[in-house]
Nucleic acid binder design. Structure first.
Lengths: 207, 207
DNA sequence: TCAGATGAATCTACACCGTAGACATTCGGG
DNA sequence: CCCGAATGTCTACGGTGTAGATTCATCTGA
């Protein structure tokens, strides 16, 4: 083993994550990250084959704060707790939120969380064949909610335009209160929807 | 009005869409699109302020093929039909699928589809305040499914790794058949889950 | 008929990006 | 002592989005 590395893969992800938090996603270029580490841009390629691979690792690292669910709670609470924790962790690092949304991390953290999800869903009484599918569905929903949050600010106006459609519907009640796109409230609503669906399916599977 | 424009905004989106279908998403650079139209790259900026804005328009245009739902069907069928149509339209243009997934289009087509969704959900018996929230949830889920489809090929291996977690669970049945990430089957499953959730909520709202 | 206005299309140029490929450096083991 | 080998560095290339100035074709009013 020649020349002990002065730069570990973890150093890189940690620094990149901080940089992304501080200056936004588009600041996480190879050159900027290297500058932050005070090393040559090309050195990063010793640890990650691509910029893509590096960002995957950074996104995964951002989920390290997500803890294990409490095994004593009923599955629905565990599920909400877990998914909320992931959402919070992702939003706490705005620089990588978009990346997490676009391609849910499957690094060590991602796999750990997926395992926890599967473990929780195993207690729902859902047919075994459906557990993994449900996991994917939940991850997909979570990812999408994050994507909505990322662009919420820029797009709320256009959503408002969509929402007026409802007001003009026969029987629709105009003057409804605003539903903020990507809000925590909105996330929780969809989650309850999904959990109700799981409950309905696990009780008596339909179709 | 001096000098009639030889280049319309729609020309651009149509050409860019074709180019993206033929050569992939990363081929849709300003220069390549301009080359395809046989004009100067900078000319595109007369019609779209950004590359971003241009791609938004292209993504929206890709949804033009989605038809209006049949008002005679029950709402659940209308919903599945509509969402499936959007999914098909998006997948038929692989060059923009990722973009559609990342930021659901809110151009004319997107708004038309959102309106159709709202119209359908208005018949569910769902509390009025929840209709728009459910719309957002469904769009989020659809977007997420598309995102999964995009990267399915590259990531199935790692998903396989996740799936083995389930096999090792006490009471888990190893040797389960493979669930292909982003497949139509997977999409349909989550959709049924959501519809069951809607049904449960519209019957007797819980919480 | 012709100057001028007006906006579309173009040209040039800049700063920046990811990264291939050759090179230098620094260590442990024989 | 030297050699193999992995790490860090340097240079350079082809590409990107797009700002700013400029050309050009057309319509208008005199």
């Amino acid at each position: 083993m020649p020349r002990p590395p002065k730069l570990t893969a973890e150093d890189i992800t940690r620094t990149a994550l901080r940089l992304g938090d501080r200056e936004g996603a588009e600041a996480m270029t190879m050159r900027r990250i290297a500058a932050e580490l005070d090393c040559d841009p090309m050195s990063l390629y010793r640890h990650y084959t691509n910029r893509e691979a590096l960002l995957d690792a950074v996104a995964d690292a951002a989920l390290a704060a997500v803890g294990e669910p409490d095994a004593d709670e009923p599955w629905a609470e565990r599920l909400t707790g877990l998914l909320t924790a992931v959402r919070d962790a992702a939003l706490r690092h705005p620089g990588v939120t978009a990346h997490i949304a676009a391609r849910p991390p499957l690094g060590p953290q991602g796999r750990r969380i997926a395992a926890a999800l599967i473990g929780t869903l195993a207690d729902t009484g859902l047919p075994p064949a459906d557990v993994v599918r449900t996991t994917q569905t939940l991850i997909a929903y979570l990812a999408a909610s994050l994507a909505m949050s990322v662009h919420a600010g820029t797009r709320d106006a256009r959503w408002e335009q969509v929402r007026t459609v409802f007001d003009e519907l026969p029987g629709g009640m105009p003057g409804q209160e605003l539903n903020i796109v990507g809000s925590t409230d909105q996330f929780g609503y969809g989650l309850r929807l999904l959990i109700d669906g799981i409950r309905a399916r696990s009780a008596g599977p339909r179709v």
